[in-house]
């Protein structure tokens, strides 16, 4: 799949922003006044910024409001609802903390749960696709949720929770990579089943339909990026999980938290780039490519 910068930025930062909102909703940390304002500004900048970035990959962004209509069947529509509901409810909760010094605990818990539900709906947009076997697996929502909760815990300074979440997240990521490598082959979809010609002999793509490229090849067949996949996986693992864990086990200091957060974000950007670049869409088979 084509790793569009807008979608990488969207999934990375909105995931972190909603993760931070989850911890803020639970009152971890319990802050009021200007401190609360700073935390909520960071969370909203990430969550809203990410959502705005996602509109850049739309062909007709001016009609984006229509995406609220099909929540019965569409995970993308459900994501639209949960994200807006989270942002509205957490705005009430945040306003209470910032302006009145009041913690409406029930509102915060509800907003926090909605924040995690939002991340789940995002992950299901990818997980639901049978056409991308690497994503069509429980590890996709598991990764999105663990990274959102773990990254949010780092940003919220919740070292006690961040450490195990990052450790589990890194482990699940390794499992996702290793099992994901064989999932296209294991899906049963091959050029033979795609053409129905498999029982006549070995099928090979002989000539593409056009001499030039097309939307399908640009969007779904991104082979260039996979060349350095092994190195990027190592970088994502070290920068996204190893380094932040090292900073978090140091004695508590806001500077170390900031370092851990910046390193984690850089690692997750690499991880998300791989998430798209490594994912093979079955339509590539028709072109003799993966």
């Amino acid at each position: 799949m084509h790793p569009a910068p807008s979608v990488i930025i969207f999934t990375t930062f909105s995931g972190l922003g909603f993760g931070l909102l989850f911890w803020l909703g639970l009152g971890m940390p319990f802050v009021t006044g200007w401190a609360a304002f700073a935390y909520f500004a960071l969370a909203y900048a990430m969550a809203v910024g990410g959502l705005l970035a996602s509109t850049f990959h739309l062909g007709r962004p001016e009609r984006a409001i229509r995406a609220f209509t099909q929540w019965r069947t569409s995970w993308l529509s459900r994501e639209a609802w949960t994200s807006v509901a989270t942002l509205l409810i957490m705005a009430v909760f945040g306003a209470g903390l910032v302006f009145a010094g009041q913690r409406f605990a029930a509102v915060g818990v509800l907003g926090g749960l909605l924040a995690i539900l939002t991340v789940f709906t995002t992950s299901m947009i990818y997980t639901q696709l049978k056409t991308v076997p690497r994503w069509h697996h429980w590890s996709t929502p598991a990764m999105f949720l663990l990274l959102s909760l773990g990254g949010g815990a780092v940003l919220a300074g919740q070292t006690l929770f961040a450490l195990p979440l990052l450790a589990i997240g890194g482990t699940v990521q390794v499992v996702a990579w290793m099992t994901g490598d064989g999932r296209l082959a294991g899906s049963g979809t091959t050029l033979a089943s795609a053409t129905g010609l498999g029982n006549l002999g070995r099928v090979r793509a002989f000539e593409p339909p056009h001499t030039g490229t097309n939307f399908l090849l640009r969007e779904f067949v991104y082979v260039v990026g996979r060349r350095h996949a092994a190195q990027l996986r190592l970088i994502a693992l070290i920068v996204g999980f190893g380094v932040p864990i090292a900073f978090l086990v140091l004695p508590y200091n806001p500077l170390w938290i900031a370092c851990a957060a910046i390193s984690h974000i850089a690692g997750i950007l690499a991880q998300r780039w791989l998430f798209f670049a490594e994912a093979e869409h079955v339509v590539g088979l028709y072109y003799g490519k993966r």
Binding site: L58, S74, A194, E219, H281
Partner: peptide, 18 residues
């Protein structure tokens, strides 16, 4: 249509083009 391309992602046959 908002041109999000998700339908093209969901189609295994490459039948949809933005």
């Amino acid at each position: 249509c908002i041109g999000c391309s998700l339908c093209a992602w969901a189609c295994p046959y490459g039948a949809r083009e933005l």
